[in-house]
């Protein structure tokens, strides 16, 4: 029989080594599989996407900007752009790079896959919203357009991605988004968020941390040169104008559309009655539909009926039935307090 101490140490080492290798997402195997991708193809596609972004934002692209975008040196960037040009995807003129028609549709295909995948993650998985973009950055290079099309069909051909960007159609058309940046609104304006820019990641995470999401109504309280103060969901938020430019809003002119004075369902006490005004856009996918199927739609009367032993969940009487909701969801359902 071997010495137990040595066995213990050996066992410990083996278990840790196996864990380090096989651990989901963070293990060496997962990292290796993620890195075993076609880095050449990826660089080409990323560069192409960059040229497309330039065109979309009416900027001009150069080899230098590609180098910056790909975090690489000028030589590599020149190589990439030469390859793209030889593939007939871009043309250059006077140091500036332009998309060919073929290049544009190639780029739109990548964008379609990317945004569909983000939609998939948001509505059909439990992946956190801060990870949607980075996951889609990987999938966009590996998923074929046919796979993406059948995924879209399964999801009911969604129109916009969770950040509010339109998803290019199967025919590779990209509809206009519209709206203005948050820093273009004036004091007293009311608008609805229609898009949150997901790059750079740090800024996006900050916006998410503030509880902002698409469909949310915001009200500009004060606007100065160095900061914008606005109210969203009953909370006051302060943003620097440069960060505010990452938020696109649609100004609400029609007074009837303005939701005022709503309270989250979770704040109702047993015996109080509320009328459902809306469900926050942060509740997505199956969960949102399930709530609506159960009768949580605007106009429904809703009454907390029974509190569970631990205080969460709470059962509500909705449309004649008793349905238990968790606080994380009832926080995102807005009601108007009744009598």
């Amino acid at each position: 029989m071997s010495d137990p101490l040595i066995s213990l140490i050996l066992g410990f080492i083996i278990v840790s080594a196996l864990m380090a290798f096989f651990f989901p997402d963070k293990g060496l195997l997962a990292i290796w599989r993620r890195s075993a991708k076609d880095s050449k193809k990826e660089a080409l596609e990323d560069a192409l996407k960059h040229v497309y972004d330039c065109e979309y934002n009416s900027l001009s692209c150069t080899i230098r900007s590609i180098a910056g975008h790909l975090h690489t040196n000028m030589d590599k960037a020149a190589e990439v752009s030469a390859r793209l040009e030889s593939m007939g995807l871009i043309t250059s003129n006077n140091q500036k790079l332009y998309l060919t028609d073929e290049g544009r549709s190639y780029a739109l295909r990548i964008i379609r896959v990317h945004r569909l995948w983000e939609h998939y993650l948001a509505d059909h998985s439990s992946v956190k919203e801060t990870e949607w973009h980075s996951e889609a950055e990987i999938v966009e290079h590996t998923m074929t357009i046919e796979e993406a099309d059948s995924l879209a069909a399964k999801m009911g051909n969604p129109l916009i991605d969770p950040h509010g960007d339109p998803i290019p159609t199967a025919g590779l058309e990209l509809p206009e988004l519209g709206g203005v940046h948050l820093n273009e609104l004036e004091k007293g304006d009311i608008g609805r968020i229609i898009h949150l820019e997901d790059e750079p990641q740090a800024v996006f995470s900050q916006l998410i941390a503030m509880g902002l999401h698409n469909g949310m109504q915001i009200h500009i309280i004060d606007k100065r040169t160095d900061r914008i103060i606005f109210e969203a969901n009953g909370e006051e938020n302060i943003l620097a104008p440069t960060l505010a430019a990452n938020i696109t809003v649609k100004k609400i002119e029609d007074q009837s559309e303005i939701l005022d004075d709503f309270t989250p369902l979770s704040s109702l006490q047993v015996g109080e009655t509320g009328i459902v005004k809306g469900i926050s856009r942060a509740l997505r996918g199956q969960q949102r539909r399930r709530l609506m199927d159960l009768g949580v739609v605007p106009g429904s009367k809703i009454t907390p009926e029974l509190v569970s032993r631990a205080g969460n969940p709470v059962a509500y009487r909705i449309r004649g039935a008793s349905v238990a909701l968790r606080k994380q969801h009832s926080d995102l359902i807005f009601v108007e307090k009744g009598e």
């Binding site: 651990f23 989901p24 997402d25 509505d123 059909h124 998985s125 439990s126 992946v127 956190k128 996918g285 199956q286 969960q287 539909r289 399930r290 709530l291 159960l294 029974l306 969940p313 059962a315 039935a321 008793s322 349905v323 238990a324 909701l325 968790r326 969801h329």
Partner: peptide
């Protein structure tokens, strides 16, 4: 499981309390 291999699966909570 919910934090690792199952985070790719959709989740929707509802619990009806029948009479």
């Amino acid at each position: 499981l919910s934090k690792t291999i199952l985070k790719g699966e959709a989740s929707a909570f509802s619990l009806e309390l029948p009479p």
